[in-house]
Every structure is written in structure tokens, then in C-alpha cells.
Design a protein around this nucleic acid. Structure first.
Lengths: 212, 212
DNA sequence: TCAAATTTTCAAAGTTTTTTGAAATTTGAA
DNA sequence: TTCAAATTTCAAAAAACTTTGAAAATTTGA
């Protein structure tokens, strides 16, 4: 393998472990990502010097993440693997899977905890903290959901604009402008909560969060 | 420990391993997050039934992530730990650290690979793929940098609005409207760029904005 | 300074995860 | 259906990571 490709593959092997995936999976993915053509399991095992069975397991995991496509060639019974070419589509897939595997279970746990009635001050405080976490996760999740709706075409445009921060400032500004439109509204809440956690406790009840 | 808090703590222990942190670290963080008052290492060790030394290591790691604050109380020599209360600040910290530990090294690796001149078709293709990845990461990074600039106050407003998706649609729309404003612009870029990494490269210069 | 209190380090034990080779299963074509 | 190619499973070996207890180092107040 050329050093150029190798450094890419090795980097993903390492990085993989910072995320939930292991070296094998990371390397397989990286190899497929830069490969000109789909590869079969034997080719992958040979390129990366992993055992055939290890590759099999790795490919299964990548399929579970929906990160690889499977295809066949006429007159060849082996399975060939490749990655979607559209990097934006890949990003969306990743975000979706992580949402499903990490965010949803966390929200479920939090909802459960927030339904209990607090038995004492410690629990009341814990619930207030959990509520704050719940609200933030919900907010960020909904941003993501919106961003994910951007189609490839819009993305192209954004990319062509370049990633210079200046331009993006405008987006933020419209965002800020939008929020300012929100008229007065019971104010005190947020402030006091942070400073004196025990005392005013919005606790279980309020929960506005749109919980499904 | 009350079951309410326990389920939260245990969940973070498990989830931690999906991210790069281990059970101990996850649980310590969760415990501090919901705790009414700062805790010292012995209290943490006792609550979680971990050895004192394990807790010491865990706290060090949390400090490296800047996720815990250290403080002292008069007349007590022990160190007490707590988490920042502002969940948005916590999110920003996390994003910054991950940027530093994961995104930057990846961008550096990619820049390196993109500077090489491709030796053959396979390398040429690999570089085009890497360029696509580079551009996407840069784009997403710059969004994050912008979002991170939102101050707590704006956030409060956003949260008060509720996380209903409908409202956010408007943000997306202004975003889309904004991109439409972009006139035509040299096209070929992506495929050929590999050869001339210097040219418009936003990398090193402006874009990193937000971090530290 | 000392010594008590506290935190940190570190080698070893324990645990979990990854990787493998061999065997079992599945698959598609004849 | 059978056969051989291809894939998957699985138990065991290897590697990586976590956790611990004991000892060392540091800090503080007298």
C-alpha cells in the first residue's frame, strides 16, 4: 500500500479507538473510503494484514452502522464493499446512528429519572440538573435534525462559499435576530436556577422539552 | 446512593465507554454533575465503591478534559471537585477538547497527505476523497465555532422558545436563503486542489477561530 | 524542621476487548 | 441435490485496558 494511503488508514485505525470502534473497523473503513473500486473481504484482509475472520467481523460492524454498501459483480460470487461517495450522506448516517445508539438511550434514562418524585433535597437537586441536561440535549438534537435536512445541493453551495468564518457569521446573526423576536416571557426562572440550585427547583413538572 | 441518582451514574459509566472515557471517569463525572455540593476524592471513592487510587486517576483525566473544577474549603486541606453548572459551558468545553484531540490531528494528517503529489491513479483518487473529507470537516468545524460563540443568554432564549422543530425551520430557511445569494464561482476546485494545497487553504489561518 | 494528612505513582492482578485459526455454515451453480 | 467457494462462528490466545494496594511523594500546620 502506498504510504499516502497508509497514513490515512493508520490514522483512522487509531482514531477509531477514541470513538467506539476498534482498529480493524477503522482501518477497513478508511481503506474502503479511499479505494477506487469496491473490495472484497479477501482483498481487504490482504491489504491490511488482518485475518480473514477479523475482517468479516469488522465488515459486519460497518454494515450495522450502515457505513458500507454491499454489491456483487456478475460472474463473481464474492461480496464487494464500498462506502457512499457523498461525504455529506456519510456524515448524516453517522449522526443518525449515534443519535439512535447514544442520544436516545440517554434521553430515555433521563425521562425515567425525571418522572420520579424526589425523596429529598439531594434528589430534587439532581433532577434539576438532569432537566438542564435534558433540555440541552433536546435543543442540540433538534438543531442537528434541521441541519441534516440540508440537501447535498445546498451543501455544495455552502462548501463553494468556502469555510471562512466571516461568511458564517451571517448565519449566526440571522439566528440571533430570530431569537430576539421572542417577546418578554416569564424571565426569572433561568437565572435563579443556576445560582441557587436548591431553592427554586423547576424539577420534574415543567419538562416542556417536547418529550415524545 | 438513591436509585434515582444511581441509574444516572451507572448510565454514564456505560456510555463513557462508547466515547473514549472509561467507566470510572464516566461515573465520577456523573456523580459530580448531580451532586449538590463539591465532593472530595474520598467521598467519591466511597460513593462509587472504587479504590482511592482509581478515583485519583479518574479525577486527573477529568481535569485534563477541563470538565471539573477544583476548590478548597477553609480549614480543610482536601481538594473538592465539582462540575461547571452551566450546561452550555460544559458542552462548549467538550466540543473544544474534542476539536483539539480529534479534529485537529485529523486535519493535520489530511493536509499532509494532500500535499504529496500523487504517484498514480489510485493515489489521485485517494486524494480527491481526502479533499472531500477535509472540506466537510472544515465546514462542520466552522459551524461549530460559530455556534460556540452563542452566549449563555442567547441560549436561554433559544431554550425558552422550546426545542420545537418548527421554529428552527426558520433558521434553516435563513441559512438556505443566505446560500442562494452566492453567485457563480470557479468550479473545478475540488478534484484539482490536491496539487495546490497552498492556494486558498483556509486551514492554518483564520478558521480555527473558536478553539481555546 | 517534623509528622500527619492527603494525593499520586506504579507494578501487578484482574477484566475486557480484539484477533486468530479451525471448524461450521451458507450460498449459488451445475 | 451436491460441490466447492465464500462467509460466519467460536473458543482460545493475545493484547489492551482498568483497577487495586502498597509505597512514595507532596503538602500543610505546628
Amino acid at each position: 500500500m502506498s504510504p499516502l494511503i497508509q497514513s490515512f488508514v493508520l490514522h483512522f485505525g487509531e482514531m477509531g479507538s477514541r470513538w467506539g470502534i476498534n482498529r480493524t473497523v477503522g482501518q477497513i473503513y478508511a481503506l474502503l473510503y479511499v479505494s477506487e473500486k469496491p473490495l472484497n473481504a479477501d482483498e481487504i484482509a490482504e491489504e491490511l494484514a488482518f485475518s480473514r475472520s477479523n475482517v468479516s467481523i469488522g465488515l459486519k460492524e460497518l454494515q450495522a452502522w450502515r457505513l458500507v454498501k454491499l454489491q456483487h459483480f456478475p460472474g463473481d460470487r464474492r461480496e464487494y464493499f464500498s462506502t457512499p461517495e457523498d461525504v455529506w450522506a456519510i456524515f448524516r448516517l453517522l449522526a443518525e446512528e449515534r443519535q439512535k445508539r447514544e442520544v436516545e438511550p440517554t434521553l430515555t434514562m433521563l425521562r425515567g429519572a425525571l418522572m420520579e418524585s424526589p425523596a429529598n433535597a439531594a434528589e430534587r437537586h439532581a433532577q434539576a440538573r438532569m432537566q438542564a441536561m435534558y433540555d440541552l440535549i433536546e435543543l442540540i438534537t433538534s438543531w442537528f435534525a434541521e441541519i441534516q435536512k440540508l440537501d447535498a445541493e445546498t451543501l455544495q453551495r455552502l462548501m463553494k462559499l468556502g469555510s471562512r468564518v466571516q461568511k458564517l457569521l451571517q448565519i449566526t446573526q440571522s439566528l440571533a435576530r430570530f431569537t430576539h423576536r421572542d417577546g418578554g416571557d416569564k424571565e426569572a426562572k433561568a437565572e435563579s436556577r443556576a445560582a441557587r440550585p436548591d431553592e427554586d427547583d423547576p424539577g420534574a413538572g415543567g419538562s416542556e422539552g417536547g418529550a415524545r
